[in-house]
Amino acid sequence: MLDDRARMEAAKKEKVEQILAEFQLQEEDLKKVMRRMQKEMDRGLRLETHEEASVKMLPTYVRSTPEGSEVGDFLSLDLGGTNFRVMLVKVGEGEEGQWSVKTKHQMYSIPEDAMTGTAEMLFDYISECISDFLDKHQMKHKKLPLGFTFSFPVRHEDIDKGILLNWTKGFKASGAEGNNVVGLLRDAIKRRGDFEMDVVAMVNDTVATMISCYYEDHQCEVGMIVGTGCNACYMEEMQNVELVEGDEGRMCVNTEWGAFGDSGELDEFLLEYDRLVDESSANPGQQLYEKLIGGKYMGELVRLVLLRLVDENLLFHGEASEQLRTRGAFETRFVSQVESDTGDRKQIYNILSTLGLRPSTTDCDIVRRACESVSTRAAHMCSAGLAGVINRMRESRSEDVMRITVGVDGSVYKLHPSFKERFHASVRRLTPSCEITFIESEEGSGRGAALVSAVACKKACMLGQ
């Protein structure tokens, strides 16, 4: 009897593995994704193909990295998701002549009506938060230079001027797309009239992360975010950046690689679950690469896999709870928690219980395998993109072996128990001629924006502006 049951459990697990095998990517698959990513990057950089390229390769006008001589107080704003952060950054000489960066910050959550109302409502709310922060720190009387981390696709015309191309991540505030974001912020500050600010720089969160990590390690020339969304930036040779005049030196390019796949480059790798996630998203047909990796989508992918296993009578005796059938019910943090389970399955059992399920031991094991399959594919897909960037940098610099540091931020990278190990191992397999160091950014977005502002202020002083 026991043997029969054991055989049935083994057969069930084997069927589960057959279904989950769809998520496995072979090294040849990853090399294919990497080569296609490089081709799209090239198209994004070139003037004649930029418009139709899915990977936009947006110039950021960040050319210099901090040298350690900029000092002063800077205000930093960070808008990239449902939370908005205001930070005071003091850049100065530390002990023994070292450079020191001290920060104080406060988080504000953005109400739904500000995210989806008008641009005026959104930026009025942001300036209200700045006003509140300055009151708390008794700094209303000071006109501070301000660095703005704005983590949406922007076409820069200068370091302090950028046109919002399109909202992502659930934002829909009308009247912002096609307009200068810094102008919208300046107008809102003017409307309030109770404080003055000098907006000197606007950067993407990947750029802010790279600059913040450069402060720790001067070989950091790539910034990457794996959180709600997924994106990367890197220092490109100016001669390859056709959208900006000049051939000397390097400029940081914001790849906006989340949109890779929007022209069909990933079609052969998309599964039924991916198509369902895409169809029910706020932007169907867009940001397809990001939807395979980002935390906004990972939990939902797992939920759809679990429903398939229920329908195949391989999980929960073929019956799903009402909660499990509800879109968004299986949160991405559950994926991390399930994979963090120590082996007694308590954590998995508790999560499934909150979803109205009474799982068996085998159910718990199957749910864990589903989570591992989805998150491992995410790590491997992400590795193909980064390997594409790094191999490109090595080739354009004609280096036999390139040493490089990548600064990384984002909740999936930082909080998932195995993502970074799987990701690092896969990147290294795909970049055999590179020695890569990964560092995690601390308060990256805010500190990085302030350091970019410090560079901009120093330049302005040198130019006598």
Rank of each mutant, 00 (worst) to 15 (best):
A6I: 08
N180L: 13
S445F: 13
L270C: 06
S100F: 04
P417G: 12
R191I: 07
V207N: 01
H380M: 13
V277S: 08
H156V: 13
G223L: 01
E256A: 09
S109P: 10
M41F: 10
L75F: 01
I211E: 00
L271E: 02
F269P: 03
L301A: 10
S433Y: 13
T118C: 15
L25S: 15
G318H: 15
G183I: 08
A232T: 06
F316G: 06
D158M: 15
Q98W: 08
D160Y: 12
D158P: 15
V310Y: 09
S64P: 00
E9L: 12
E421F: 12
L415D: 14
W257F: 14
M238H: 13
N313D: 08
H218N: 14
S280E: 14
L270S: 05
V71C: 04
F148I: 07
R333L: 15
G81F: 14
A282T: 15
V253W: 00
D187M: 09
V199H: 06
H416Q: 10
L352S: 02
V406P: 00
A454N: 12
R303Y: 03
L307P: 00
A10T: 11
S375T: 03
D3E: 09
K12N: 11
D247Q: 04
T342Y: 01
L355Q: 05
V203N: 00
E440D: 10
N231F: 02
N313M: 06
L430V: 06
V226N: 02
D29E: 08
R325L: 14
I348M: 03
R422Y: 11
C252M: 08
M115A: 13
A387D: 00
G72S: 01
V71E: 03
V226G: 02
Q337L: 06
D135R: 06
C213M: 04
T116Y: 09
A10Q: 15
K56L: 12
V253M: 03
M41R: 02
A387E: 00
E40Q: 01
F316D: 07
K143P: 00
Q138T: 14
M462F: 13
G170I: 14
M298W: 03
L134T: 08
V302D: 00
H50G: 02
G407K: 10
G246I: 02
V277G: 05
S54V: 12
H105W: 15
E435R: 11
Q239T: 14
S321T: 12
